[in-house]
């Protein structure tokens, strides 16, 4: 049962990573790409880490795995804010659908 849940979490995490990569490759400008990268990838990482923590040998190992996630969330939020702020200060215009 625990193995099954762990496998399911790993697969869900892989799906979110895939969504993040597709978003980075396909989206048109900085802001939308930041959106794909910062949210989808970190959710994928959270699912993968939770799936691995379910299979860890000891409680300490599981907690260490789960502690990576808040660190990555905080770091990614700071980096995304810094890049988006700088892009706006430099006058990079947000993408709009072209009107025909």
């Amino acid at each position: 049962m625990i193995d099954l849940a762990s496998d399911a979490l790993l697969l869900v995490g892989a799906f979110f990573y895939f969504a993040g990569t597709v978003g980075l490759v396909r989206f048109p400008d900085v802001y939308t790409r930041l959106h794909a990268l910062a949210k989808a990838d970190n959710l994928g990482l959270g699912c993968v880490l939770a799936g691995l923590a379910l299979q860890a040998e000891s409680l300490a190992a599981a907690l260490k795995l789960l502690l990576i996630w808040p660190l990555v969330l905080a770091a990614s939020a700071a980096v995304s804010y810094a890049i988006a702020h700088r892009a706006e200060a430099l006058g990079v215009a947000p993408w709009r659908r072209e009107e025909k």
């Binding site: 990268l37 990838d41 990482l45 993968v48 880490l49 990555v72 990614s76 890049i83 700088r86 892009a87």
Partner: peptide, 27 residues
Amino acid sequence: GPTPADRMLTALLFGSTGVGVLALLAH
């Protein structure tokens, strides 16, 4: 392109995915 930030985001993607790959490899 079009801006340098788009290129930097590739490096950030490698960072966040690399963390996941390393945790999976550890297991």
